[in-house]
């Protein structure tokens, strides 16, 4: 290894790339948190949602030859429509059933979504080119591709927006009431089913943006769904129902991942990037199962 200065610069660039990737994880985790916060349902198909949004965008671009903005808009609308339909057809009949029913239903959905693209439009990787420059931007010794910078910006805007939404807006307050106690919310005149649908639609929008950004960074194929596996450490660290938790969890997971890839990979021969966040998560589950900001559940018989 080189001098002290080189060491520090290496560390700095790892942290910068970790932070920017981490905030992009937060964006996907946000879709997860929104659904859990409002409906108490956990979406194991979040990664597949992201993948599907990428496929919507690329097929609109290549098959229909839409201009890029129209294609992105199409992806968002299609994802919202799909989330609505999903909530209506699959999840509403499962209301009041044991947790495992919802978990298994979303796992089943994930399987369907992963199986569909190879059958319909082929399995090969498709490029999703956004109209942004691709020369990396320098931050001191660290460099970031512009797409990551865009991802970070979108993540921050959405995270701030949703925090405001849940704290201040009438709809957000109603949604928090629904999450807290469905029966009381119903008695207060809140249309619970409508808010379930809205929560899923918002998750659809977030997944669509996640799919566009991640898809243009990694290319769109079924492997894109693996991004969803990173969501679990993020939300467990932060707490399943906390937006600020999703941000912090994303930052931690991104940084840990990047540091593990930089320092541990040369020692053990690769792959620690996908492994370290899960170890962190297991430790968190053992000592503080509800994460940093998650709401503790008190059970009564």
């Amino acid at each position: 290894m080189g001098s002290m200065k080189e060491e520090l610069e290496f560390l700095f660039s790892l942290v910068v790339s970790g932070v920017s990737i981490g905030l992009m994880y937060s964006l996907i985790a946000l879709g997860f948190v929104l659904v859990y916060k409002a409906t108490d349902a956990i979406n194991f198909a979040q990664g597949e949602f992201v993948m599907l949004a990428g496929f919507f965008a690329t097929s609109a671009l290549t098959l229909k030859g839409m201009p890029i903005l129209a294609a992105l808009l199409f992806a968002i609308i299609a994802m919202v429509a799909m989330s609505f339909a999903l909530e209506r057809i699959v999840l509403r009949p499962l209301l009041g059933r044991p947790v495992i029913s919802v978990i298994m239903a979303t796992i089943g959905l994930a399987a369907i979504l992963r199986g569909l693209p190879p059958i319909t439009i082929g399995a090969q990787t498709k490029a999703l080119v956004l109209p942004i420059p691709d020369t990396p931007i320098n931050f001191g010794p660290a460099t970031i591709p512009p797409i990551q910078l865009l991802g970070v910006t979108v993540s921050l805007v959405f995270l701030a927006g949703f925090t405001w939404f849940f704290m201040k807006s009438r709809m957000g307050v109603a949604m928090r009431a629904v999450a807290d106690n469905q029966q009381v919310a119903m008695a207060m005149g809140i249309n619970v089913e409508r808010y379930f649908a809205i929560a899923w639609a918002m998750a659809g929008v977030v997944s669509a943006l996640g799919g566009i950004i991640w898809g243009s960074m990694l290319g769109v194929d079924t492997q894109l769904a693996l991004v969803g596996l990173k969501v679990f450490p993020v939300v467990i660290l932060g707490g399943l129902d906390s937006i600020i938790g999703a941000v912090l969890g994303g930052l931690i997971v991104g940084t840990v991942e990047s540091l593990a890839a930089g320092y541990l990979d040369p020692l053990v021969g690769g792959g620690t990037k996908d492994f370290a966040p899960y170890v962190l998560m297991i430790v968190m589950l053992m000592f503080k199962p509800y994460g940093m900001f998650g709401k503790h559940k008190i059970e009564r018989i």
Binding site: V90, P93, L94, R97, S101, M104, A105, I107, G108, L109, A110, A111, I112, L113, R114, G115, L116, P117, P118, I119, A123
Partner: peptide
């Protein structure tokens, strides 16, 4: 892929 799709559908159908 067909297997994945049919499995997913079966799981959901039986659950619902």
């Amino acid at each position: 892929s067909m297997r994945l799709v049919i499995f997913g559908m079966l799981i959901i159908l039986f659950l619902v």
